[in-house]
Design a protein around this nucleic acid. Structure first.
Length: 313
DNA sequence: GTCCAGGATTCAG
DNA sequence: CTGAATCATGGA
């Protein structure tokens, strides 16, 4: 039934190899909502307006696109951090004094923050509140199929902000977004008149970026942190979701801490690559590797009583 | 039927 | 200011 004509497989060398199990964690572990696993370890996904397939291979990845695709290798090199820049960031994490982190780094060695398109990241995480990863993927796919441009077969690019801004209630209803439909539409109406939004955001510091993101409808602290991390490559951004709350409560003895407090702990304890640490802990928590807090023995921690003034200017 | 999901927003107190 | 209620939908 498929009318896709593929190029030959091409090799994408990676400084740090990505075994099949780790590739699955990266592509289907909550960073992206646009990949589907096929047979034989092949993953098919839509990046921008490209339909791409990848699979683990010795020394890196094999990939292919549709016949006639202009070379997508530069984009994929960035997407998968082919140069291995994040290896340095991982080494800067406090794994030498943090046994929990050390275990997570070992279990998912080579895990990377993929460099997603900011628009796609924002759309995905606008759908994410109170939803599981699988259902987020369904909603994003529905948005693409309903309002995006067709690529081939049943694969569609994500719709533009201007298209989303004029989405009808019927169209949004068909995507089963629930109350998130208002998030999508509200953010779309703001961003459709800001064609250089990404460039503007890139110039900001991470703290400024997080504030600007949270000014968008449906974007709170957690979604902003995810967009900053996965969409803008801010490795210091530390999203605190239910899994991270669980992980820090059980493995770091931080029961009862509120998300904002945990975010502060994350940035202080993990430093400039806190978001990278977060993704390892997120993966470990979801894999059930942090469910035995008795073994862990973290250093004593003090809770800050100081409140942060929420002023701007 | 009940509970929960990579939360955000609104509403009491 | 903080904490609880509410939001729409689908799967376990």
């Amino acid at each position: 039934m498929s009318s896709v004509v593929w190029t030959a497989w091409r090799h994408l060398p990676l400084v740090q190899e990505v075994p099949a199990k780790l590739l699955q964690e990266q592509l289907d572990g909550g960073q992206s909502f646009r990949w589907q696993g096929l047979e034989d370890g092949i993953w098919r996904g839509v990046l921008g307006n490209h339909l791409i397939e990848v699979r683990a291979a010795s020394g890196g990845l094999d990939w292919r696109g549709r016949q006639g695709l202009h070379d997508a290798e530069p984009m994929l090199r960035v997407y998968f951090d082919a140069a291995g820049e994040q290896a340095l960031a991982v080494d800067q994490l406090p794994w030498r004094s943090d046994q929990v982190l050390a275990a997570a780094l070992k279990s998912f060695s080579g895990l990377r923050i993929l460099r997603h398109d900011p628009h796609e990241t924002l759309i995905g995480f606008l759908c994410s509140s109170n939803k599981r990863i699988l259902q987020i993927k369904v909603m994003v796919a529905a948005l693409a199929r309903t309002m995006g441009e067709k690529i081939v077969d049943d694969y569609y690019a994500l719709p533009s902000w201007s298209r989303l801004a004029r989405a009808t209630d019927t169209e949004l209803k068909a995507c089963a977004l629930g109350y998130r439909a208002a998030f999508i539409r509200g953010t779309a109406k703001q961003l459709e008149v800001r064609p250089h939004w990404v460039d503007e955001m890139q110039k900001l510091s991470t703290d400024e970026l997080l504030i600007e993101l949270q000014a968008l409808p449906g974007v709170g602290p957690k979604v902003a942190a995810c967009v900053a991390l996965f969409g803008f490559g801010r490795l210091e951004s530390f999203p605190v979701d239910t899994w991270v709350v669980q992980a820090l409560a059980s493995a770091y003895q931080l029961k009862g801490w509120k998300p904002e407090q945990l975010a502060g702990f994350g940035r202080t304890h993990f430093g400039g690559a806190a978001g990278l640490a977060q993704q390892y802990l997120f993966a470990a928590a979801r894999a059930g590797l942090l469910s035995a807090p008795a073994e862990v023995k973290p250093r004593p921690l003090k809770r800050k009583s100081k409140r942060s003034p929420k002023r701007r200017g």
